[in-house]
Design a protein around this nucleic acid. Structure first.
Lengths: 334, 334
DNA sequence: CTGAAAGCGCTTACAG
DNA sequence: CTGAAAGCGCTTACAG
């Protein structure tokens, strides 16, 4: 446990002042080549690594971006996190994650720790933290949100073309001859869930089909809720030949429920998800779904934040969605 | 963007010295109740949050634990990360993640940034960073590894009972009457992969069955490699009725390959994985697999590190494995 | 119990 | 181009 070398150690060894060492470290000041070389040699020799927390204190900026996420375990947040990492790469900023676990208290605690660590910017991934609190934070440090809406801070929120994606999905089912199409929705207070349901409704209406409330069941975006919603749907006894789920995870649950009932996909029931998680390529059969690239959203969130940090407008693009036709959808039988 | 209040601001407002403010902040020194109350009131009034980087500098400890992971996207690392978070909860330490993406350069960079940020301890998740380098780091700050072995630092590495888990899995297949059992292995340089293959071999041998090299194909732990390995296996033309995959992800790929070939699971081929990822409950049909709780491993790694930080021995328990029989295995036909 | 002082490791005006 | 000085925000001996 020997002490780490400091700037002073390097200065001594290179026969210069700490100021000069710092100058070669930051590189934004001219230094005599000979001294610079000596400093570099000393750094090499002592295997010196500047203490970033000390630098952060001196500079008043930490070069770290706080990422308030909800779960480290879900595929959804994992892809988002990866996208943010990508977007931050090479910027000099490092991302630090803290999870809220969809619990207000945990979320508050995670946010507090991030703020106390003096993050230079914040990316909020979903969650329930109040809009007012988020707006207040945005007055102190730049903030971008993904997977949630913040009233009055719309241009700091990544927008996804949910309705058009859903529309395409349901249109695809209609084109395959389906007329009785069920919808398992997400958390209704969630903007994404509403928009996806809207796309569903619009696709039906525009095709001259009636919207049957008995074919709509609410879920909460988890596999488990998809399975449960399917049970509810089946219990109602209304006939249907296809299901459009508001996300892939629920589609997985629905898929299992169908399997349990001996209903074949896509022979008996067609199934469409939303998200296109990495795993959807490997379900049996591979899932037809609407892709909204989480990687891209993460990347754009990071870039937007970087722009904000450079005092530019966030200029967040709207995320397009695209129907990916795989093997859970087929022409209706009979 | 008003300045954040500092200890001095609080001191001024509460009519005490900064020292006293610090004393009530840390709480490890007696302070007159009246002054303490005044300080608390001032903190409340100004909504003061102590600057953790400054504190870290003063104390010489950051209270952050670096976690060198490989990917933020995989289910596997996600569960591990969650476990670490759980294990660290309430300890005052915060985890900071940096990913190596299974690339030496990225891994080195990720490690450098973690070290430069003065982490107080390090948890290494998989990866290729050389044992010697890791041993050197362990001389400076405590280190624990998960999903990898470090020569000479065995008691700092989480050990999983791979062989016994594999043994049980293959034994289960044998009990169902299978005699021609294929194995799709992981990366051979990986200790886990070797041990799992050993369990497979031992189960066969102990049942008096011969080990047929043509029934063993090497994969690299990805879904894609599972699919490819299955193709290789099928191309060899050797008969088999069951497959034991070295991890769940490869099992997913194999499952897809089987589906493509029109081979039913478990009717035609039985399939067993290893890991029991969250998603394995929702595959079609649900996957029979060997559980090694990643959550538990993460938790134990965190606790072990906390012990090391308290100058106690790591005392890492061995992680038990357990066969979880679901629906991809059945009695052999005929 | 409490304040003044010194220090954590780095950086940037400030004078040469 | 370069060194001495001051400061970032906090904490902990050091003297009362």
């Amino acid at each position: 446990m020997s002490k780490q070398p400091t700037v002073s150690d390097i200065a001594r060894l290179a026969h210069v002042s700490p100021s000069t060492v710092s100058r070669v470290l930051t590189g934004n000041s001219r230094v005599h080549p000979a001294k610079s070389a000596a400093v570099l040699a000393a750094i090499e020799q002592l295997n010196f690594r500047p203490n970033l927390t000390a630098r952060a204190l001196a500079l008043g900026k930490s070069m770290v971006i706080g990422i308030l996420t909800q779960s480290m375990m879900s595929q959804f947040y994992g892809e988002l996190a990866q996208g943010i990492e990508d977007g931050l790469a090479g910027s000099g900023y490092q991302g630090v994650f803290a999870s809220g676990h969809w619990e207000s208290l945990d979320e508050q605690a995670a946010l507090d720790i991030l703020l106390a660590r003096q993050v230079d910017g914040l990316i909020v991934l979903g969650g329930y933290h109040p809009d007012t609190a988020l707006r207040a934070i945005n007055k102190q440090i730049p903030l971008i949100a993904v997977g949630r809406h913040i009233e009055g801070l719309e241009d700091h929120c990544i927008r996804v073309e949910n309705a058009s994606g859903s529309f395409q999905a349901v249109r695809h089912l209609i084109d395959l001859g389906h007329r009785r199409i069920a919808h398992i929705g997400g958390i209704p207070s969630h903007l994404d869930a509403c928009e996806r349901q809207r796309g569903y409704t619009e696709a039906l209406t525009s095709a001259g089909l009636a919207v049957d409330e008995r074919l709509i069941v609410e879920g909460n975006f988890t596999e488990q809720s998809g399975l449960l919603a399917l049970e509810t749907l089946l219990a109602r006894g209304s006939h249907f030949t296809a299901i459009f789920a508001a996300n892939d995870q629920m589609a997985y649950g629905i898929r299992l429920g169908l399997y349990r009932r001996g209903l074949r996909v896509p022979d008996d029931i067609s199934l469409v998800g939303f998200d296109d998680l990495l795993g959807s390529v490997y379900t049996t059969p591979p899932l037809t779904t609407v892709r909204q690239s989480m990687l891209e959203q993460g990347r754009q969130a990071a870039r937007g934040l970087l722009r904000l940090l450079a005092n530019e407008p966030p200029a967040l693009p709207s995320i397009t969605t695209e129907l990916v036709i795989r093997e859970t959808t087929a022409r209706v039988r009979g």
